[in-house]
Structure formats: structure tokens, C-alpha cells
């Protein structure tokens, strides 16, 4: 037995000494635990987000703006490059961008913005703006849900001071549970990192005054795209 196994046995042993379950209780406990681990069911879901798609998009937009995110609705994926360029111009930033190497974003037609210098890949400390694709949005609190993958590195949404995120309108769910259920349905196990993002980075650690851009992005722009088809 390794040291770790010994310590593990001691801790679990202490717990079992306290619980002192009868065989029947133990069987019942195991059944309950298995049920809750293998077949988790939602607890109370607030009524707030339980709306039709347009209602959810509207609520999502309001909630995200309440936490200082910029939200823009675009009819087509092909509108993303122009919206990105306009965002950079609006904030007096260089026309430079690192983009997640996701097939959807690669098909957005960035050639339409010849002034925009862009690179597909992960962000490093020199990148001022990053663009990636969200898995879902949650209307309840205006929250984005990002799932890591080879083509969607996580640092893109954390290292650059400006974070732009494409969110397909049809993927705005009412509650976190519904978005997570969709992830389970599509992928089974969660990817390495699932990031729920609600507004840009912030801190209240200096005299409880709200300051944006503590470590993560100072600005968060959400591009809600209705039609994700390329071209």
C-alpha cells in the first residue's frame, strides 16, 4: 500500500466509523448516490429564463449588458469580420486579432476586411484582442458558456484585454442546466475546461470600487449570430 492509499483508507475509514451504516442502509445509500451521480436531475430552475427563443435572447442581452458586456446581434456569420473590425475601431485599438482555429470562424470570410490582420491559434501575452466561439449562452444571467477543444483554446478569452465571442442565437438557453444537458448530449464527458463568463473581468478589491479588467479582459463583446452557415 502506498502512502497515499494509506491516508485514503484512514480518511474513508474514519467516515465509515462515523456513519456506521447497517447493510440495508448501506445498500440504500449506494443506490441513492449512484442515482445522483449517474442520472442527475435538475433541482429548482428559476422561472426567469423559461421563455421562447426571442424572449431568451432579449433577456440574455439585457443581463449581459447589465454586467458591462457589449452585445450585438448579427444576421449572418459573414457579418462577424466587419463587426469585429468596427469594435476595434470604436475602442481605438489596432486592427489586429487572434482567432480560434475553429472551422466555423475560419469560414466567416475575414478576407472581406483586408485591413484586419489576423492569426488563427491560441493567444499569447502580446495579443490585444481575441475572438472565439461560445458553446452556449444562458439567458438567466447573461452568461456565456465556452467549451475547450483543440480548435477552441481557453486562453483566447482570458489573456487579451479585449475578448470577442461569437454566440449562435439558437444556442441561448434559459438556464445553466439546459446548456449543460446539451453538452452531455453532444459530448458525454465535459471537455477539460468549461468557462462560464458573465461580463468582463472585474475586481472590488481596492476599497470595494468596481474596476474592470483585473486579470482577464477589460472589454467583452458578444456577437450574437442568427445564421451560422458560412458564405
Amino acid at each position: 500500500m502506498s502512502d497515499n492509499e494509506r491516508r485514503r483508507a484512514a480518511i474513508l475509514g474514519r467516515l465509515r466509523d462515523v456513519y456506521r451504516r447497517s447493510p440495508e442502509d448501506e445498500a440504500a445509500a449506494i443506490a441513492t448516490v449512484e442515482q445522483r451521480v449517474f442520472h442527475p436531475a435538475p433541482n429548482l430552475i428559476p422561472a426567469r429564463g423559461q421563455l421562447d427563443l426571442e424572449g431568451r435572447i432579449e433577456l440574455f442581452t439585457t443581463m449581459a449588458r447589465n454586467v458591462q458586456a457589449e452585445v450585438e446581434r448579427l444576421p449572418r456569420l459573414a457579418d462577424v469580420p466587419a463587426a469585429t473590425s468596427a469594435f476595434l475601431r470604436r475602442h481605438n485599438l489596432p486592427q489586429k486579432l487572434v482567432v480560434a482555429p475553429d472551422p466555423v470562424l475560419q469560414g466567416a470570410g475575414f478576407a472581406s476586411q483586408p485591413l484586419l490582420r489576423l492569426r488563427f491559434g491560441d493567444a499569447d501575452q502580446h495579443d490585444g484582442a481575441g475572438l472565439t466561439l461560445a458553446f452556449a449562452g444562458i439567458a438567466e444571467t447573461g452568461t456565456l458558456m465556452l467549451c475547450s477543444a483543440a480548435e477552441r483554446p481557453t486562453l483566447l478569452a482570458f489573456l487579451p484585454e479585449n475578448s470577442l465571442i461569437v454566440l449562435p442565437s439558437a444556442r441561448v438557453f434559459g438556464a445553466y442546466e439546459q446548456a449543460w444537458q446539451e453538452l452531455r448530449r453532444e459530448q458525454g464527458r465535459p471537455p477539460r475546461s468549461v468557462n462560464f463568463i458573465t461580463g468582463p473581468s472585474r475586481t472590488g478589491d481596492i476599497a470595494q470600487r468596481l474596476e474592470l479588467g483585473a486579470h482577464g479582459p477589460r472589454r467583452l463583446a458578444i456577437l450574437l449570430v442568427d445564421d451560422l452557415q458560412a458564405g
Binding site: 447589465n66 444571467t141 475547450s148 483543440a150 483554446p153 475546461s193 468557462n195 462560464f196 458573465t198
Partner: peptide, 24 residues
């Protein structure tokens, strides 16, 4: 805690980086 609807970042981490991941 703070009266926020949700904190800015809630992150669910599962294991080390996966094959092909560019970071983690």
C-alpha cells in the same frame, strides 16, 4: 456574497489538457 447575479467567471476543470489542446 456580493449581490451579483453570477460571478464573472465560473470554471469547470476536468483533468489535464487533452490531445490536440493548445493550452491547459
Amino acid at each position: 456574497a456580493t449581490g451579483q447575479e453570477f460571478s464573472a467567471y465560473t470554471t469547470v476543470m476536468t483533468g489535464p489538457k487533452r490531445p490536440g489542446d493548445l493550452d491547459g
